[in-house]
Design a protein around this nucleic acid. Structure first.
Lengths: 136, 136
DNA sequence: CGGGATCCCGCCGGATACTG
DNA sequence: CAGTATCCGGCGGGATCCCG
Protein backbone atom coordinates (compact mmCIF):
# COMPACT_ATOMS: atom_id res chain seq x y z
CA UNK A 1 0.00 0.00 0.00
CA UNK A 2 2.37 2.69 -1.22
CA UNK A 3 0.24 5.60 -0.23
CA UNK A 4 3.38 7.34 0.99
CA UNK A 5 2.84 10.14 -1.47
CA UNK A 6 -0.02 11.82 0.36
CA UNK A 7 0.87 10.36 3.72
CA UNK A 8 3.17 13.24 4.52
CA UNK A 9 0.44 15.74 3.82
CA UNK A 10 -2.13 13.77 5.76
CA UNK A 11 0.20 13.50 8.73
CA UNK A 12 0.79 17.23 9.01
CA UNK A 13 -2.56 18.94 8.66
CA UNK A 14 -3.04 19.57 12.32
CA UNK A 15 -2.95 23.31 11.89
CA UNK A 16 -3.26 23.00 8.15
CA UNK A 17 -6.40 22.91 6.13
CA UNK A 18 -7.60 19.49 5.03
CA UNK A 19 -8.04 20.94 1.56
CA UNK A 20 -4.30 20.43 1.15
CA UNK A 21 -4.89 16.70 1.20
CA UNK A 22 -7.28 17.13 -1.70
CA UNK A 23 -4.75 19.21 -3.59
CA UNK A 24 -2.10 16.57 -2.93
CA UNK A 25 -4.33 13.88 -4.40
CA UNK A 26 -5.75 15.79 -7.38
CA UNK A 27 -2.79 18.07 -7.96
CA UNK A 28 -1.08 16.24 -10.79
CA UNK A 29 -0.72 17.70 -14.24
CA UNK A 30 -3.16 15.28 -15.88
CA UNK A 31 -5.10 13.94 -12.95
CA UNK A 32 -8.22 16.07 -13.19
CA UNK A 33 -8.59 15.27 -16.89
CA UNK A 34 -8.03 11.57 -16.36
CA UNK A 35 -10.53 11.40 -13.54
CA UNK A 36 -13.19 13.30 -15.41
CA UNK A 37 -12.66 11.15 -18.50
CA UNK A 38 -12.95 7.98 -16.47
CA UNK A 39 -15.99 9.47 -14.82
CA UNK A 40 -17.73 9.55 -18.16
CA UNK A 41 -16.36 6.40 -19.78
CA UNK A 42 -16.46 3.58 -17.23
CA UNK A 43 -13.33 1.89 -18.57
CA UNK A 44 -10.64 3.19 -20.90
CA UNK A 45 -7.48 1.72 -22.35
CA UNK A 46 -4.13 3.44 -22.03
CA UNK A 47 -3.86 4.80 -25.56
CA UNK A 48 -7.50 5.79 -25.60
CA UNK A 49 -7.04 7.71 -22.37
CA UNK A 50 -3.86 9.26 -23.69
CA UNK A 51 -5.44 10.54 -26.88
CA UNK A 52 -8.52 11.85 -25.10
CA UNK A 53 -6.44 13.65 -22.46
CA UNK A 54 -4.42 15.53 -25.04
CA UNK A 55 -1.38 13.39 -25.80
CA UNK A 56 0.77 13.58 -22.70
CA UNK A 57 4.03 11.67 -22.94
CA UNK A 58 3.61 7.99 -22.00
CA UNK A 59 6.04 8.26 -19.14
CA UNK A 60 4.20 11.12 -17.47
CA UNK A 61 0.75 9.69 -17.99
CA UNK A 62 1.90 6.35 -16.66
CA UNK A 63 3.13 7.94 -13.47
CA UNK A 64 -0.02 9.95 -12.99
CA UNK A 65 -2.05 6.78 -13.39
CA UNK A 66 0.16 4.84 -10.99
CA UNK A 67 -0.18 7.54 -8.38
CA UNK A 68 -3.93 7.68 -8.77
CA UNK A 69 -3.95 3.91 -8.43
CA UNK A 70 -1.72 4.00 -5.35
CA UNK A 71 -3.96 6.68 -3.87
CA UNK A 72 -6.93 4.42 -4.39
CA UNK A 73 -8.85 6.44 -6.97
CA UNK A 74 -8.53 4.24 -10.03
CA UNK A 75 -8.18 0.58 -10.90
CA UNK A 76 -5.75 -0.92 -13.35
CA UNK A 77 -6.58 -4.19 -15.04
CA UNK A 78 -3.97 -5.97 -17.11
CA UNK A 79 -5.11 -8.51 -19.67
CA UNK A 80 -2.52 -11.18 -20.35
CA UNK A 81 -2.77 -11.18 -24.11
CA UNK A 82 -0.84 -9.94 -27.07
CA UNK A 83 -0.95 -7.21 -28.06
CA UNK A 84 -1.12 -5.95 -24.45
CA UNK A 85 -4.33 -4.49 -23.15
CA UNK A 86 -4.75 -2.48 -19.98
CA UNK A 87 -7.98 -0.98 -18.79
CA UNK A 88 -8.39 1.82 -16.30
CA UNK A 89 -11.51 2.56 -14.31
CA UNK A 90 -12.69 4.35 -11.20
CA UNK A 91 -12.79 2.90 -7.72
CA UNK A 92 -15.60 3.92 -5.41
CA UNK A 93 -13.31 6.58 -4.02
CA UNK A 94 -12.72 7.78 -7.55
CA UNK A 95 -16.44 8.02 -8.14
CA UNK A 96 -16.93 9.85 -4.86
CA UNK A 97 -14.58 12.59 -5.95
CA UNK A 98 -16.55 13.39 -9.09
CA UNK A 99 -18.96 15.90 -7.54
CA UNK A 100 -16.03 17.75 -5.99
CA UNK A 101 -14.20 17.69 -9.28
CA UNK A 102 -17.26 19.17 -10.93
CA UNK A 103 -17.46 21.89 -8.33
CA UNK A 104 -13.80 22.70 -8.84
CA UNK A 105 -14.31 22.80 -12.60
CA UNK A 106 -17.25 25.12 -12.22
CA UNK A 107 -15.33 27.51 -10.00
CA UNK A 108 -12.37 27.33 -12.39
CA UNK A 109 -14.58 28.30 -15.30
CA UNK A 110 -16.12 31.20 -13.41
CA UNK A 111 -12.71 32.36 -12.29
CA UNK A 112 -11.28 32.18 -15.81
CA UNK A 113 -14.26 34.17 -17.04
CA UNK A 114 -13.57 36.81 -14.40
CA UNK A 115 -9.94 37.07 -15.43
CA UNK A 116 -10.83 37.36 -19.10
CA UNK A 117 -13.39 40.01 -18.32
CA UNK A 118 -11.04 42.27 -16.41
CA UNK A 119 -8.24 41.70 -18.86
CA UNK A 120 -10.43 42.75 -21.78
CA UNK A 121 -12.74 45.31 -20.22
CA UNK A 122 -11.46 48.55 -18.75
CA UNK A 123 -9.32 47.92 -15.73
CA UNK A 124 -11.58 48.90 -12.85
CA UNK A 125 -8.75 48.91 -10.36
CA UNK A 126 -9.75 49.54 -6.82
CA UNK A 127 -7.13 51.27 -4.71
CA UNK A 128 -6.92 50.79 -1.00
CA UNK A 129 -6.56 54.14 0.74
CA UNK A 130 -5.84 53.62 4.42
CA UNK A 131 -5.46 57.38 4.61
CA UNK A 132 -6.31 58.19 8.21
CA UNK A 133 -5.16 54.82 9.43
CA UNK A 134 -1.98 56.20 10.98
CA UNK A 135 -3.26 55.48 14.45
CA UNK A 136 -1.21 54.54 17.49
CA UNK B 1 -2.04 42.75 -13.72
CA UNK B 2 0.55 40.02 -13.35
CA UNK B 3 -1.88 37.15 -13.52
CA UNK B 4 0.59 35.36 -15.77
CA UNK B 5 0.89 32.58 -13.25
CA UNK B 6 -2.45 30.96 -13.98
CA UNK B 7 -2.77 32.44 -17.45
CA UNK B 8 -0.90 29.55 -18.97
CA UNK B 9 -3.25 27.08 -17.38
CA UNK B 10 -6.31 29.08 -18.33
CA UNK B 11 -5.13 29.35 -21.90
CA UNK B 12 -4.71 25.62 -22.39
CA UNK B 13 -7.73 23.93 -20.90
CA UNK B 14 -9.46 23.34 -24.20
CA UNK B 15 -9.29 19.58 -23.80
CA UNK B 16 -8.29 19.88 -20.18
CA UNK B 17 -10.56 19.98 -17.21
CA UNK B 18 -11.25 23.42 -15.76
CA UNK B 19 -10.49 21.97 -12.35
CA UNK B 20 -6.84 22.44 -13.25
CA UNK B 21 -7.37 26.17 -13.10
CA UNK B 22 -8.63 25.77 -9.56
CA UNK B 23 -5.63 23.65 -8.65
CA UNK B 24 -3.33 26.26 -10.17
CA UNK B 25 -4.90 28.98 -8.02
CA UNK B 26 -5.22 27.05 -4.74
CA UNK B 27 -2.27 24.75 -5.24
CA UNK B 28 0.33 26.54 -3.15
CA UNK B 29 1.83 25.07 -0.03
CA UNK B 30 0.13 27.52 2.35
CA UNK B 31 -2.69 28.89 0.25
CA UNK B 32 -5.56 26.80 1.56
CA UNK B 33 -4.63 27.60 5.16
CA UNK B 34 -4.24 31.30 4.47
CA UNK B 35 -7.55 31.49 2.67
CA UNK B 36 -9.43 29.63 5.35
CA UNK B 37 -7.84 31.76 8.06
CA UNK B 38 -8.77 34.94 6.25
CA UNK B 39 -12.21 33.50 5.76
CA UNK B 40 -12.70 33.41 9.50
CA UNK B 41 -10.81 36.55 10.54
CA UNK B 42 -11.74 39.35 8.15
CA UNK B 43 -8.32 41.01 8.34
CA UNK B 44 -5.01 39.68 9.60
CA UNK B 45 -1.52 41.08 9.86
CA UNK B 46 1.48 39.32 8.39
CA UNK B 47 2.93 37.97 11.63
CA UNK B 48 -0.46 37.01 12.93
CA UNK B 49 -1.17 35.10 9.74
CA UNK B 50 2.24 33.51 9.89
CA UNK B 51 1.83 32.21 13.43
CA UNK B 52 -1.70 30.97 12.81
CA UNK B 53 -0.67 29.16 9.63
CA UNK B 54 2.09 27.23 11.35
CA UNK B 55 5.24 29.32 11.01
CA UNK B 56 6.19 29.11 7.37
CA UNK B 57 9.36 31.00 6.47
CA UNK B 58 8.65 34.67 5.73
CA UNK B 59 9.97 34.43 2.23
CA UNK B 60 7.66 31.59 1.29
CA UNK B 61 4.59 33.04 2.96
CA UNK B 62 5.25 36.37 1.29
CA UNK B 63 5.30 34.79 -2.10
CA UNK B 64 2.15 32.81 -1.46
CA UNK B 65 0.42 36.00 -0.41
CA UNK B 66 1.71 37.93 -3.43
CA UNK B 67 0.45 35.24 -5.74
CA UNK B 68 -2.95 35.14 -4.10
CA UNK B 69 -3.04 38.90 -4.43
CA UNK B 70 -1.99 38.80 -8.07
CA UNK B 71 -4.64 36.16 -8.69
CA UNK B 72 -7.23 38.46 -7.18
CA UNK B 73 -8.17 36.44 -4.09
CA UNK B 74 -6.79 38.63 -1.32
CA UNK B 75 -6.11 42.30 -0.63
CA UNK B 76 -2.94 43.73 0.82
CA UNK B 77 -3.09 47.02 2.68
CA UNK B 78 0.12 48.75 3.72
CA UNK B 79 -0.04 51.28 6.52
CA UNK B 80 2.67 53.91 6.25
CA UNK B 81 3.72 53.88 9.87
CA UNK B 82 6.54 52.62 11.99
CA UNK B 83 6.76 49.86 12.90
CA UNK B 84 5.34 48.62 9.61
CA UNK B 85 1.85 47.21 9.50
CA UNK B 86 0.34 45.22 6.67
CA UNK B 87 -3.13 43.79 6.69
CA UNK B 88 -4.45 41.03 4.50
CA UNK B 89 -8.08 40.36 3.71
CA UNK B 90 -10.29 38.58 1.20
CA UNK B 91 -11.55 40.03 -2.03
CA UNK B 92 -14.99 39.06 -3.24
CA UNK B 93 -13.36 36.38 -5.33
CA UNK B 94 -11.61 35.16 -2.22
CA UNK B 95 -14.91 34.98 -0.40
CA UNK B 96 -16.53 33.14 -3.28
CA UNK B 97 -13.97 30.39 -3.07
CA UNK B 98 -14.75 29.58 0.56
CA UNK B 99 -17.57 27.11 -0.08
CA UNK B 100 -15.39 25.24 -2.53
CA UNK B 101 -12.53 25.26 -0.06
CA UNK B 102 -14.85 23.81 2.55
CA UNK B 103 -15.96 21.10 0.16
CA UNK B 104 -12.35 20.26 -0.60
CA UNK B 105 -11.53 20.14 3.10
CA UNK B 106 -14.45 17.85 3.77
CA UNK B 107 -13.44 15.45 1.02
CA UNK B 108 -9.85 15.60 2.24
CA UNK B 109 -10.93 14.65 5.75
CA UNK B 110 -13.05 11.77 4.51
CA UNK B 111 -10.25 10.58 2.29
CA UNK B 112 -7.70 10.73 5.10
CA UNK B 113 -10.10 8.77 7.28
CA UNK B 114 -10.41 6.12 4.56
CA UNK B 115 -6.65 5.84 4.30
CA UNK B 116 -6.23 5.54 8.05
CA UNK B 117 -8.93 2.89 8.18
CA UNK B 118 -7.42 0.63 5.58
CA UNK B 119 -3.93 1.14 6.95
CA UNK B 120 -5.03 0.09 10.42
CA UNK B 121 -7.77 -2.42 9.73
CA UNK B 122 -7.15 -5.66 7.87
CA UNK B 123 -6.29 -5.02 4.26
CA UNK B 124 -9.45 -5.99 2.43
CA UNK B 125 -7.69 -6.02 -0.91
CA UNK B 126 -9.87 -6.64 -3.89
CA UNK B 127 -8.13 -8.40 -6.76
CA UNK B 128 -9.15 -7.91 -10.32
CA UNK B 129 -9.47 -11.25 -12.10
CA UNK B 130 -9.95 -10.72 -15.81
CA UNK B 131 -9.86 -14.48 -16.14
CA UNK B 132 -11.71 -15.25 -19.35
CA UNK B 133 -10.88 -11.89 -20.87
CA UNK B 134 -8.47 -13.32 -23.43
CA UNK B 135 -10.81 -12.39 -26.22
CA UNK B 136 -10.10 -11.43 -29.81
C1' DC C 1 7.48 44.49 11.87
C1' DG C 2 7.40 42.81 7.32
C1' DG C 3 9.73 41.64 4.37
C1' DG C 4 14.06 41.16 0.44
C1' DA C 5 18.57 38.65 -1.08
C1' DT C 6 20.97 34.62 -1.71
C1' DC C 7 21.85 29.72 -1.86
C1' DC C 8 20.30 25.18 -2.19
C1' DC C 9 17.77 20.97 -3.43
C1' DG C 10 14.10 17.77 -4.48
C1' DC C 11 10.67 16.81 -7.51
C1' DC C 12 7.69 17.33 -11.33
C1' DG C 13 6.91 17.41 -16.01
C1' DG C 14 8.54 17.05 -20.86
C1' DA C 15 11.61 15.12 -24.84
C1' DT C 16 13.74 11.26 -26.83
C1' DA C 17 14.82 6.55 -27.48
C1' DC C 18 14.07 1.72 -26.72
C1' DT C 19 11.30 -2.85 -25.56
C1' DG C 20 8.29 -7.26 -24.18
C1' DC D 1 0.04 -1.66 -27.32
C1' DA D 2 1.64 -0.14 -23.11
C1' DG D 3 4.81 0.95 -21.21
C1' DT D 4 10.33 1.60 -19.31
C1' DA D 5 15.07 4.04 -19.36
C1' DT D 6 17.74 8.13 -19.45
C1' DC D 7 18.55 12.91 -19.51
C1' DC D 8 17.19 17.41 -18.51
C1' DG D 9 15.38 22.28 -17.21
C1' DG D 10 12.38 24.78 -14.16
C1' DC D 11 10.41 25.92 -10.06
C1' DG D 12 8.45 25.42 -5.65
C1' DG D 13 9.69 25.29 -1.01
C1' DG D 14 12.87 25.67 2.87
C1' DA D 15 17.19 27.69 5.51
C1' DT D 16 19.87 31.54 6.62
C1' DC D 17 21.12 36.21 6.78
C1' DC D 18 20.21 41.07 6.27
C1' DC D 19 17.46 45.53 5.90
C1' DG D 20 14.28 49.99 6.19
Amino acid sequence: MPRNRVDGVIASWSHNCAAEVTVAVLGGAWKPVVLSLLGRNEVMRFGELRRAAGEPTPRVLTRQLRELEADGLITRTVYAEVPPKVEYGLTECGRNVQPLLDAMAEWGRDYAADVRRESAGGGADRENDPGDAAGR
